[in-house]
Computed example of a mutant assay.
Amino acid sequence: MKIAVMGAGAVGCYYGGMLARAGHDVVLIGRAQHVEAINRDGLRFTKYDVEERIELAASTEASASQDAKLVLFCVKSTDTERAAAELQRHLLADAVLLTLQNGVDNADRLRARLPHEIAAAVVYVATEMAGPGHVRHHGRGELVIEPFPSAAEIAQTLIDAGIPTEISDNVRGALWAKLILNCAYNAMSAIAQLPYGELVKCEGVNEVMRDVVAECVAVAQADGVTVPGDIDAAVRRIAETMPNQYSSTAQDVARRKRSEIDHLNGYVTRRGEARGIATPANRVLHTLVKAIEFGQPA
């Protein structure tokens, strides 16, 4: 299968690398610094402290997605519409797009712009770009995808590549569960520039997390969303299972890049306003991250 990865950052390079290792024809579409390194040296892939080089194609142009049967859509939520416009004229009519993004509404935003089969996925993986063309895996790696006509085939392709994949009828709820985890950790990790394990040791952090989670759950319920599992236990488990991980928002802030905070705590704040639910903890975290971004030189 030819597979294109639109947005070859940490998530895109990890899943693209796993699929290429399994023998698929994978092309990574990303920024010049990563593309140049990958085309020159292969993808530097560090997993469980074992490093290898994976040979695969890389391009800065969306046209590289031509002939791809599957597109892993991994751009930042802030870039969803732009990336959709770039892909539109190059995609096969029967191409499937799987959104591997933070936030809960990216698949709907894509469906408003592309006539293709589009399915949402929930991503549970800790990765980072450790340098140009170098992805480092810190833990986990499973996906939860929503049902669609070829879901079973795509899921099996992912499973065969070593990517645990589940098809769920409640992906909306799972996306909200992931959003709540992100809202609890991302902004505070960014503000403090601390990994999760150190962050939760700080005075008052766990209490703020509880406030954030309670607001998120109230908004989700008002939106008719059933959030699966024990969300409080899931929040605690993040620091236990990924103690050395910095949030993606923390990584963006450290690199002076625009973060996805508008689609995390900012999204909850907007939905709360629409539903008449106060979200002061989420509002403060959203505002503080925006203030940090505003104060950084370009």
Score class of each variant (00 low, 15 high):
V205I: 15
R236I: 04
G103L: 10
H137Q: 07
G12E: 07
P149S: 07
A291F: 15
R113M: 11
A187V: 07
T269H: 03
T279I: 04
G16C: 07
G197R: 04
V171F: 11
S248R: 12
K290Y: 03
A93R: 03
S63F: 11
I163S: 14
A121Q: 03
A126I: 02
E117H: 06
Y14Q: 07
A274F: 01
I277G: 00
N206Y: 12
T269I: 03
N282I: 13
M188K: 13
A155L: 12
V71G: 02
A192C: 07
I231Y: 08
R258Q: 14
Y196Q: 03
G16I: 11
G12L: 07
A95R: 00
S65C: 08
M6N: 00
P195W: 15
G30D: 01
T279L: 01
L114Y: 08
V208P: 02
Q221C: 08
V171E: 12
A177Q: 06
V71F: 02
R140P: 00
C74D: 06
L97I: 07
R237P: 01
Y48A: 12
R21M: 11
Q245K: 05
F45W: 03
A119F: 01
G103I: 06
L199T: 08
I54A: 00
V122R: 08
V11R: 01
G197W: 07
E215M: 02
N282T: 09
W176R: 01
A278G: 06
D262M: 04
M209V: 04
S247I: 09
L199S: 05
R89Q: 10
K290D: 02
V205Y: 14
G131V: 13
E36Y: 08
R44C: 09
R270N: 04
P164K: 14
A120Q: 05
K257G: 10
I163V: 06
V75K: 00
S63R: 05
A250Y: 14
E86K: 11
L97E: 04
R172P: 13
E117Q: 05
V217N: 00
T279G: 04
M6V: 04
V75H: 01
A291K: 00
R44S: 09
A32P: 03
L98V: 09
V50G: 09
L97N: 03
S65F: 00
E36I: 02
T46M: 05
G133K: 02
L72E: 00
H134I: 11
S247C: 06
R172H: 04
N182K: 05
T287R: 01
E36F: 15
Y246E: 14
G224W: 13
R256Y: 07
A222D: 15
A107C: 13
V268D: 01
T99W: 02
D223N: 08
I180K: 02
N106Y: 03
G23Q: 09
D67S: 15
H90K: 12
V123Y: 13
L143R: 08
L110H: 12
P164G: 10
L70Q: 11
Y246W: 08
I180S: 01
A37D: 03
A274E: 12
E55Y: 03
D262L: 04
A254C: 12
R53T: 06
C216S: 08
Y15H: 10
D108N: 11
A20D: 14
Q221E: 15
R275E: 05
A85S: 13
N282F: 14
A177N: 11
V289W: 05
H138L: 09
V225D: 04
E273F: 09
M18W: 10
A126D: 07
Y15C: 11
T157L: 10
H34A: 00
M209C: 04
I3S: 00
G295M: 12
